[in-house]
């Protein structure tokens, strides 16, 4: 099977500081792939590089077989590649509904947008209840749901999720990850998940990449990673 998103030997950094070295990874249609690693391993930078917020110095980023290296990041959601950025970054003074509608900003098909709005509200019923409330007044977990819902409004083929568990209570983390698997199963969306919380990330994913100081040190099926003694020691706290 062809990967829907592929990174080939990508290097990137901020100014003269190189962060990513020769990162290669693949995401196949319909799967959940996770990237785990410690603080500063380059996980978020990888996502930012895919979206060209950070420019790749070397290497190719392929989306459905086409090179997307130089494409401006506002052009990517229409192509079906959407990111939920780290720290949620919802629009605090817009209402929940307006936040969601902005996810579909580039789309013109208003009837389909309405359907998708209903779909998002079905995934996250709490958002329907809070539809007319300002985004900034939501709790952390609700804001994360809103951020994911907003990205879903663009009808993504590939969803890039950056640390959805950040700053959430363990119970909420469980809820969010249930929703993520649900989205993957119902909509067939490919999900590239970046997480520090390796425990939950490995449980929902099919394959995993382990990043250390900007390079991929290991890639395997999740069940092998979960049995690997090094991984268990370094990331699962055993």
């Amino acid at each position: 099977m062809e990967p829907v998103l592929e990174l080939k030997n990508v290097s990137a950094g901020y100014g003269r500081i190189q962060v990513l070295r020769d990162i290669s990874l693949k995401a196949f249609p319909g799967e959940i792939v996770c990237m785990i690693g410690a603080n500063g391993a380059g996980k978020s930078t990888t996502l930012m590089t895919i979206c060209n917020v950070v420019t790749a110095a070397r290497g190719d980023i392929l989306y459905r077989g086409n090179r997307i290296n130089g494409i401006k990041f506002s052009k990517l959601p229409p192509m079906g590649l959407c990111q939920v950025p780290e720290g949620r970054r919802i629009f605090p003074r817009l209402t929940v509904q307006e936040n969601l509608e902005l996810g579909a900003f580039f789309r013109k098909d208003s009837t389909r947008i309405q359907e998708d709005l209903d779909m998002v509200f079905d995934f996250f019923p709490i958002l329907r209840e809070r539809a007319n409330q300002k985004g900034g007044t939501l709790s952390g977990g609700e804001q994360q749901m809103l951020a994911i819902g907003r990205a879903l409004m663009s009808r993504p083929r590939v969803l890039l999720l950056d640390e959805p568990s950040l700053g959430l209570a363990p119970l909420l983390v469980g809820q969010i990850f249930n929703k993520i698997t649900e989205i993957n199963r119902q909509e067939g969306t490919t999900i590239l998940l970046v997480e520090q919380n390796a425990n939950v990330a490995l449980k929902v994913s099919r394959r995993g990449y382990v990043l250390e100081t900007g390079t991929v040190v290991m890639e395997d099926d999740v069940k092998n990673l979960l049995q690997n003694p090094d991984i268990r020691k370094a990331y699962l706290g055993e």
Binding site: S74, C82, P85, R89, R93, F106, R150
Partner: peptide
Amino acid sequence: EAIREDETAAELMG
């Protein structure tokens, strides 16, 4: 308004 709230997020939303 989205740009006012968070420019990068707005751009990521297309």
